[in-house]
Amino acid sequence: MSEMTSETPGARLRKTVEARQAFLVPGVMNALAARVADDLGFEALYVTGAGVTNAYLGLPDAAFLGLTDLVGHVAAIREVTDRPLIVDADTGFGNAVNVWHSVRRLERAGANAIQLEDQAAPKRCGHFEGKSVVEASEMVEKVRAACEARSSSDLLIVARTDAYATEGLEAALTRAERYIAAGADITFVEAPRQVEEIAEIVRRLPVPQLVNLVIGGKTPPIPQAILQELGVGMVLYANAALQGAIAGMQQALSTLQAEGRMTEADGLVASFTERQRLVGKPLLDGLEARYAVREDGAA
């Protein structure tokens, strides 16, 4: 777990985003992935709705995840890391009133930033075909409700628009401007296809920008250095950990199936010792020793 500081995670996140140095944020789909990312030193973590849906339900990112499921995952992740948590709340699980309730619950569970998007139901992955968006005025009210629902000013509201796919860049920028006027701290134009468009997004919008680089998605792979030059606030790799885990599981289990055995020496799995370290077994051992009852019954 990361070291505690006098600043809240939300304040640390705001400072890092406002530096506009395109800092990398990996997506985490569960508490184990959060431990791995924390252990590697990433500054913040993104609780990915797509990743949680894929890993927890084994389903595609198409509005199958409920608020209670997401709250439970955020709380579990918060227990194992002090890193700032950016939480993908999809469309807010309903209208503006539902958004207000969702923000309250997610903030209590440990979110430091909450992302909302303007897709119409049923929402889907931002890099899928067939998306549609609600009226901008509806999303404006959701953003306003989210800002008014938060208990701490350190909780950031991230407003995402998917209008690029259906209405083009100019319409997406106009929507983002309206969401900023409603109180959004960060905006996120999903799935632009050219570096020049990202440059225009950053130039036009006054708040820090999030760029989502989906591996295999519609936005081309862009080096972090270029995004730093453009002044991007943060760069999201929402499902790099999940896609890596899938590839690793497929390779390990295919080898097991083919060979009929597996050992640490094969180099396809983390060692038993490393697995226990990551999940905090040494801490548990220390607690058991500290609170062990002696033979005379004393602590």
Rank of each mutant, 00 (worst) to 15 (best):
M1K: 13
S2C: 03
E7P: 08
G10K: 02
V17H: 01
V17C: 10
A19P: 10
V25N: 00
M29R: 07
A33L: 04
R35E: 04
R35S: 05
V36I: 15
D38M: 03
Y46Q: 00
Y46F: 11
A50R: 02
N54I: 04
L57N: 08
T68S: 15
G72A: 12
G72K: 07
V80E: 01
N95L: 06
V99E: 09
H101D: 12
S102E: 03
R108I: 09
Q115P: 00
E117R: 06
P122E: 07
C125M: 09
V133R: 00
V134P: 03
E135I: 01
A136V: 15
S137L: 12
V140N: 10
S153L: 11
S153I: 08
A172K: 09
R175Y: 06
E177S: 14
R178W: 07
R178Y: 10
I180M: 10
A182N: 09
G183S: 11
T187R: 04
V189T: 03
A191L: 09
E196C: 06
E196S: 14
I198E: 09
A199R: 15
E200Y: 00
E200N: 11
L205P: 03
P206Y: 01
N212F: 03
V214I: 13
G216K: 10
G216N: 10
T219F: 06
P223E: 06
A225H: 05
Q228C: 08
E229F: 02
L230K: 02
V232L: 01
V232K: 01
A245F: 04
A247T: 10
A252Y: 08
L253H: 10
L253K: 11
L253Q: 12
L256M: 14
R261I: 05
A265H: 14
G280A: 09
L284F: 12
D285K: 13
G286E: 15
G297V: 07
G297D: 11
